[in-house]
Amino acid sequence: MALTITAAVVVGLAAVAHAGDLSTPTPTPTPSPEAPWPDFAMPPYNGTGPTLLRFGCHQVVVDRIDPLVNPGSIPSPHQHQIVGGDAFNASMPVSDISELSTCTTCSYSDDFSNYWTSNLYFRARNGSYKRVPQIPNRLFFDDEFTTKTNGGMVAYYVSPGKGEVKAFEPGFRMFFGDAALRSEPQGQWNLSTQTCFRCYSGPDFQGDDLAPCQDPAVDTQHLPNGPCHGIRTNVIFPTCWDGKNLDSADHTSHIAYPVEGPHVFDGIGTADTCPDSHPVKIPQVMFEIVWDTTAFNDPNEWPEDGSQPFVLSTGDRSGYSQHADYVFGWKGDALQRAMDAGCIAANCPGIATQAVEEAAKCRVPEVVDENYEGWLDTLPGNPPQPSATTST
Rank of each mutant, 00 (worst) to 15 (best):
D325L: 12
E357A: 14
W189N: 11
D276L: 14
L53E: 12
V158L: 03
S23A: 15
P238T: 09
D272N: 14
R182A: 11
S159Q: 11
D219K: 00
F176M: 10
F175Q: 10
P349C: 06
P383V: 10
W241G: 01
V69H: 08
C213D: 03
H323L: 05
M42H: 01
L3A: 03
T378R: 06
L100T: 07
D276T: 15
V94M: 14
T252L: 06
D276H: 12
L335H: 10
K244P: 01
H80A: 11
F112K: 12
T102P: 02
D377N: 15
R363V: 15
F141T: 11
S73T: 14
A19G: 15
D208P: 01
T6H: 00
G243C: 05
H222W: 01
T105G: 07
T273M: 06
N150Y: 04
E34R: 00
T273K: 08
T392I: 05
T102R: 05
I351H: 00
N190T: 10
D178L: 02
G202W: 07
S32P: 01
Y320A: 05
G171N: 02
A155E: 10
D316P: 08
Q59A: 08
Q336T: 08
V10M: 00
V285W: 10
T314Q: 06
G152F: 01
S101G: 07
F287E: 09
E357Y: 01
V62N: 05
D247E: 15
A19E: 12
G306V: 11
Q81L: 04
D66Y: 13
A179H: 10
K361P: 04
G306M: 05
K331T: 15
S248D: 09
W330V: 04
A388M: 10
H80Q: 09
D377Q: 14
P27S: 06
K162P: 04
D111I: 07
D325Y: 04
H229I: 02
N114W: 09
D111G: 03
V218Y: 01
R64Y: 07
W375E: 14
W189I: 04
P279D: 12
L3T: 08
N347I: 07
T293R: 04
M174G: 04
S253P: 02
I97Y: 04
V327A: 13
P77W: 06
P383F: 09
S113H: 09
V10T: 03
S128G: 03
Y45A: 06
A8H: 00
D333E: 13
G342H: 02
P71C: 14
H78M: 13
G207K: 06
C348W: 10
G152K: 03
Y108L: 09
C240A: 13
S118F: 04
A352Y: 07
D209P: 00
T6Q: 00
M42L: 07
Y326V: 15
D204Y: 13
P258T: 14
G151L: 02
G350R: 09
H323S: 13
T293M: 03
S101N: 04
E304T: 15
T147D: 02
A352Q: 12
P299D: 04
V69W: 10
S91K: 14
Y320W: 12
G49P: 01
Q284I: 09
P365E: 12
H80F: 08
W37H: 00
A346F: 05
N70A: 12
G374P: 11
D86N: 15
C196I: 05
P309Q: 07
T117L: 02
W302C: 05
L246C: 06
T220F: 00
E99D: 11
R64M: 13
P160A: 09
Q354Y: 05
